[in-house]
Every structure is written in structure tokens, then in C-alpha cells.
């Protein structure tokens, strides 16, 4: 997959290999959209989409410092949108989420592995 920097869009013909490009750079859409009361305790079961996220630590140096709103979530990845869209694997990073209340929560990405609806079923505190 190649990226055309000048045009800012994907050069691959046919299907879009980088989805959600139309949202890139429009992070204001997400401002204040998250309605949940996310805390340090319940973030593992809560919705990550719509939260502000920042990558603190990662096994890959280029991922460090990515900042933006979480756009999408799959079992092993988070899609984050800032002035472009990144897909970040969960299990090798440490993320700092900022809730609507302004609280900053650091989470090890390993504990977030799982599909969004399956995370709800994850082991409740023992």
C-alpha cells in the first residue's frame, strides 16, 4: 500500500485500502460526542470510540506520539484519527486516554485486546 502525500489520498485503484479518509483532519466532529462516564476502573469494558487517545509507549518508534480520537476498533487494532488516520495494534502499545471529564487514564494496550462487544464480557473484577 502506497500513500500519495501530495494528493492526500490513496493511489490504489478500485477499493479504498485506507477507509474513513473523509474524517481525517476533522477531529472536531468528535468533540464532546462521548456520553459515557469513563473511569480508570471501567475503561476496560467501556467504549473507546470517541475518546481522545495518545500513544505513550510502543514497540515501534514511529507509533509513539500519535494523538487523536479513536475512530474504530477491531480485535487487535485501534484506528485513531488526527490529521490523518492511523491503525495501531493494541498489544504493543501503551495508550493514554482522555475522558470527557478531562481525566487522563493510562492503559496497557494488552488489557484492551478483544472485539468491542466482547470486551464487555471480559472478566469482571475477580
Amino acid at each position: 500500500m502506497r500513500w500519495n502525500r501530495e494528493k492526500g489520498k490513496d493511489r490504489a485503484p478500485g477499493r479504498s485500502q485506507r477507509p474513513y479518509q473523509t474524517v481525517a483532519g476533522r477531529t472536531w466532529i468528535f468533540r464532546g460526542a462521548h456520553r459515557g462516564r469513563v473511569t480508570r476502573k471501567n475503561i476496560i469494558w467501556h467504549e473507546l470510540i470517541g475518546l481522545k487517545a495518545k500513544i505513550i509507549r510502543a514497540s515501534h518508534p514511529e507509533l509513539v506520539g500519535i494523538e487523536g480520537y479513536v475512530l474504530d476498533e477491531t480485535r487487535n487494532t485501534l484506528t485513531i484519527v488526527g490529521d490523518r488516520v492511523w491503525t495501531v495494534p493494541k498489544d504493543v502499545v501503551e495508550v493514554e486516554f482522555e475522558t470527557a471529564a478531562g481525566e487522563k487514564i493510562r492503559v496497557d494496550g494488552k488489557s484492551l485486546v478483544g472485539r468491542p462487544e466482547m470486551r464487555l464480557k471480559k472478566r469482571w473484577r475477580k
Partner: peptide
Amino acid sequence: ERVETLFTMAERVFPYSREL
């Protein structure tokens, strides 16, 4: 809360990306 959030976001995002 999650359902509420997701639908709110869907409404916000709709004009820019329907698939999202």
C-alpha cells in the same frame, strides 16, 4: 452508555462518512 455514545457518534459522523 456505550449504545448511547455510539449512536450519538453515528449521527455526528454521518455527513462525512456513511460507512463509519
